[in-house]
Simulated assay, not measured.
Amino acid sequence: MSTTPPLSKPGTTEPPADVPPQRPFAGRHMWARTRPVLLPAASLLVFLLLWQLLAASGTWSETLLPPPAKVWDACVTVSTTHEGVRGYNGTYLVEHLGISLRRIAIGAGIGIAFGVLFGLLMGTVGWLRALFEPWITFLRTLPPLAYFSLLVIWLGINEEPKITLLAVAAFPPVAVSTTTAVAAVPRSLTEAARALGASRWNVVTDVVVPSALPETLTGVRLAVGVAYSSLVAAELVNGLPGIGGMVKDAANYNNTPVVLVGIITIGVSGLIIDGLLLRLERAVVPWRGRA
């Protein structure tokens, strides 16, 4: 009996049986896995190094540009009880942040809820869009400081003007994005739903809302960002305790390290919240970018 192995088919390039299959380069997989962490960490280190070099160069005084070590010391001071003083103005940094986040949650939550509602109405009812869209555009172009003083006159200096300002700031991005998304729903989908016997309400809930949801969630992220950018303006008057009020009060006394601590805290917490919203968007609309 012949023991000669069968010949390969013409045109094939099968490797010999004794040659192990080649594995992908392990370093490439490791780099792809660690790149999202290493690159931001590297950019942060470069930023801190440049900051330290500029502060040590003496071009500006420490009042204008304190070194990173002094900002860190200020962060520790406002986060602990130091020489009998509790945090900043009797409140720890995390408590200032928590109070501001509560204001943003309430104010932006109200603005987002009304923005989604108005967006659905204006996207489905043409005359409502023609009636309200100019006013929403007018409101979207106004900077928060332009009407904050008026809110203080109307509502006083307690929580009402702050929450109202954040709600007004968060309302236009959601309303505009939802209106655009609803108006862009393919007519063929709504007509097909009606042909199958769906009521107007079923068309809105089962066709319009799922189709508009990705752009609506993008508008929510924009609204939260606008609310965050309006935080210091919202806490200009009677903002303590609050992270924006802490920044404003420290600026009155040229306490630049505390001002930088507040700004960094606002930025980092904003990044975290935006990341959470992005994860929520991916969980709620996993088909985005794939369909």
Results as ranks from 00 to 15, higher is better:
P16T: 09
D206G: 03
V71C: 00
L97E: 02
G87E: 06
I263P: 00
V203K: 08
F171G: 01
T124Y: 10
A146M: 10
A175K: 05
F171I: 09
V176K: 10
F118W: 09
G115S: 05
L217A: 02
G219S: 04
E281Y: 02
D18F: 10
G84V: 05
V85A: 11
I157T: 03
V284Y: 09
G11K: 12
P67Y: 00
Y253A: 03
T59N: 13
L276G: 01
P173F: 03
V209W: 09
L217Q: 00
K70R: 12
L236R: 00
E215F: 10
P5S: 08
E95T: 08
I263Q: 07
A283N: 07
L139R: 01
S57Y: 08
L139G: 04
H96G: 04
T12N: 04
V168R: 00
S177V: 02
L155I: 03
H82R: 14
K162E: 00
V268K: 14
N252R: 11
T13V: 13
I263R: 01
P144M: 10
L97N: 08
G289P: 06
A17D: 09
V94Y: 13
A130E: 15
T81K: 15
A227D: 00
P257L: 05
L236I: 05
G289M: 11
I104R: 10
E133G: 08
E159Y: 04
N252D: 11
A181G: 06
A184S: 15
A69D: 12
S8C: 07
A183Q: 12
L217F: 02
G245T: 05
W201S: 06
A183R: 15
F114D: 07
G262E: 03
E83Q: 15
P5Q: 12
A195L: 04
V237M: 08
L155Q: 06
R23I: 14
V76W: 13
V226N: 10
F47N: 06
R282V: 09
